[in-house]
Design a protein around this nucleic acid. Structure first.
Length: 269
DNA sequence: ATGGTCGCGGAGCGA
């Protein structure tokens, strides 16, 4: 009897979860579709889709095998979860908020992952009324996470948090000291969201400074290597245990007509 | 302290 051919290493089934602030899903469609075709992630959390659900390009994503859970809004905001094979138990917004609330939150279950996709308020500048709204908004989401996302399950909270963790998340810490996206109250609000037991997954794998997810168009930040790490993957203990890596696709940000944010990819075993 | 560039929508706002 011939020797059996050497066994190929068993492909460990993996699952990729992406968070990407696309800065208009319709303006970015010819960037997003090829990227999905190439990277084939299982779950894609989009922020700043900037359109109502009726005009979201659902057919284009379905053609790639994705099911779309949408929470859109005209002109500003808008979030979505694209998933293969599908997403269940979708919850739009923060339960209890008014119908006039900005569309910044959507949750859904894919496989054994409970996913919460956030587009956190920007806040404009420290002391601006929008800044106070940002801190209040983050506290409401912190309460939502504490009450509705059991940390003994695989909870994945992703999105554009519009908050850095520390000096490593920027090129020039002194330029950003106590500024918007970097102030201590914002970081305290981020910590409050994580308090039930979420971990900044990126930092479990990479401790060095200089890894960014957003670069300002206005100052041509990308060309100068000047960005911030404000898009995050926050994981409960069981999700963290299953996570094998987190990376930022900086190459996508370097292409033609990019979003100002790069996709962040988390891989799970 | 301000501006710079995008996207939306068709002027100025938000980021």
């Amino acid at each position: 009897m011939p020797a059996p051919s050497p066994a190929l290493p068993l492909e460990t089934p993996t699952m990729q979860v992406v968070t990407w602030n696309v800065n208009s899903v319709r303006a970015r469609l010819q960037r997003i579709l090829p990227w999905l075709d190439e990277n084939r992630p299982d779950v894609v959390c989009l922020q700043e889709t900037k359109c109502v659900d009726d005009v979201f390009p659902v057919e284009e994503f379905e053609a790639l095998g994705y099911e779309c859970a949408l929470h859109g809004q005209k002109t500003y905001n808008g979030v979505a979860i694209l998933s293969r094979p599908g997403v269940e138990d979708v919850v739009c917004g923060v339960p209890g908020e008014g119908d006039d609330a900005q569309a910044r939150v959507i949750a859904g279950t894919v496989g054994d992952l409970r996913v919460l996709n956030l587009y956190v308020v920007n806040g404009k500048s420290v002391g601006d009324p929008k800044y106070d709204f940002k801190l209040e908004w983050m506290q409401r989401v912190a309460d939502y996470i504490a009450s509705d996302f059991p940390m003994d399950q695989k909870v994945v909270v992703v999105g554009d948090f519009n908050v850095t963790f520390d000096d490593r998340d920027m090129l020039d810490p002194e330029a950003w000291r106590d500024k918007i996206l970097c102030s201590q109250p914002e970081r305290d609000a981020l910590a409050a969201m994580m308090k039930p037991g979420l971990t900044d997954a990126f930092r479990e794998f990479e401790q060095d400074a200089g890894h960014f997810t957003w670069w300002d168009f206005r100052t041509r930040g990308f060309q100068r290597g000047d960005g911030l790490r404000i898009d995050h993957v926050l994981l409960s203990p069981p999700a963290m245990a299953a996570c094998s890596g987190v990376r930022v696709d900086v190459e996508e940000r370097a292409r033609e007509k990019p979003s100002d944010h790069a996709p962040v990819i988390a891989e799970f075993t």
